[in-house]
Amino acid sequence: MSKFQHLSDSDADVSRAAGILAQGGLVAFPTETVYGLGGDARNDTAVARIFEAKGRPGFNPLIVHLPDLEAAREIAIFDHDAAALAQAFWPGPLTLVLPLRPDAGISPLVSAGLNTIAIRVPEHPLAVKLLNAFGSPVAGPSANPSGRISPTRAQHVIDGLESRIDAVLDGGPCGVGLESTIIGFAPAPGLLRPGGLPAEAIEACLGTPLAGVTGTTETTPSAPGQLTSHYAPNAPVRLNVTTPEADETLLGFGPVEAALNLSASGDLVEAAANLFHALRQLDASGVGKIAVSPVPEHGLGVAINDRLRRAAAPRD
């Protein structure tokens, strides 16, 4: 492919991005959650390039992005519960893991050999424009080196992947700032990964509790985003800290004195949107250790704490 391109949200640049995808190239694009690294989900070489660019383990499946529910039904089989969630929350920060249609034509690399597919319909208008312009399913994990902090701005993508991909579509900061919530349906609706849509909203729609969060793993994920050590800054992270040590830099939440604060007012929506950018700012400042204030374990706090626990997990 040609030299890396930093593209705008113009119709001409969206067409350029769709053309790059059609040639088997990789284009990072904004969603309401984080920036995704897009490749043609039906092109084995393009999908292999996604894994190569990210340094992502081949056993870790990818999310496929689609413009609408009709397109999603062409590659996956929906039961009653899945259809209800799709109709209620798509477009939006919800991924469904569903049986893959045998004739879907999706590269087997996308599903890492599983007979299911993780799919979602994003809400970001620039993502929708790209998906409609390309006209085919787009595999799109987060546009960052595997295991590192997810990108919520185009510059984050450039900092991590500029030399490994073909372009980024710049749609400004991501509004939600956390990856999508992932729901599986075998044998009943269950939470595979907390994310930008609170589990309480999903349970209210279904009228039944979700099965608990599936345990993290290092070798056998059933959905994207289940690896134990993930979303990690360079510095070690310690959680639920009210009084940081002298050599720690505090990432705050609520009315506390801190080098950076996710939300001084204690707003979980604001904290979710700021999380990954704040971790990147601390990385860029070269701090040696990061301490994080307690974050409530409800609503979006469940997803925030999930990402923080993975950021703090032991690393090889």
Rank of each mutant, 00 (worst) to 15 (best):
K3S: 15
A12W: 08
A12M: 09
D13Y: 10
D13A: 06
R16A: 15
R16D: 10
A17Q: 09
I20A: 11
L21P: 04
L26W: 12
F29Q: 06
F29Y: 15
L37N: 09
G39P: 00
G39N: 09
N43R: 11
A46W: 02
A48D: 10
G55F: 05
G58T: 12
F59I: 05
N60V: 01
P61L: 05
P61K: 04
H65S: 14
L66M: 13
D68Q: 08
E70R: 12
A71N: 06
I77G: 04
A82G: 01
L85C: 07
A86P: 13
V97Y: 00
L98A: 00
G105I: 14
L109S: 14
S111R: 12
A112K: 03
I119Y: 00
I119R: 00
R120I: 07
P125H: 11
P125E: 11
L131C: 10
F134H: 07
G135V: 09
G135W: 10
A139G: 07
G140M: 05
G140F: 02
P141E: 09
S142L: 12
S142N: 05
S142K: 04
A143I: 09
N144E: 12
T152V: 14
Q155H: 07
Q155P: 04
H156C: 09
D159W: 07
L161T: 02
E162G: 03
I165N: 07
A167G: 10
A167V: 10
V168K: 06
G172Y: 11
G172A: 10
P173T: 05
C174M: 04
G175F: 02
V176H: 03
V176D: 02
G177V: 11
G177W: 02
G184R: 00
A186F: 04
G190N: 09
L192K: 01
P194Y: 02
I202W: 02
I202Y: 03
L206N: 00
L206S: 01
G207H: 04
A211N: 11
G212H: 13
G212D: 13
G215R: 10
G215N: 10
T219Q: 14
T220G: 13
A223M: 08
G225H: 05
Q226T: 01
Q226P: 13
L227I: 14
H230V: 04
Y231H: 11
A232D: 05
P233Q: 11
N234L: 14
A235G: 11
P236K: 12
R238G: 03
N240M: 13
N240V: 01
T242M: 13
T243V: 15
D247S: 13
E248V: 07
E248P: 12
E248S: 10
T249G: 07
L250G: 01
G252L: 08
A258F: 09
A259M: 12
A264Y: 10
S265W: 01
D267A: 08
V269L: 08
V269N: 09
N274L: 08
F276E: 00
F276H: 15
H277C: 09
A278F: 10
A278V: 11
L282H: 06
V287F: 04
P294A: 08
V295E: 00
L300Y: 01
D306K: 01
R307A: 14
L308V: 05
D316R: 15
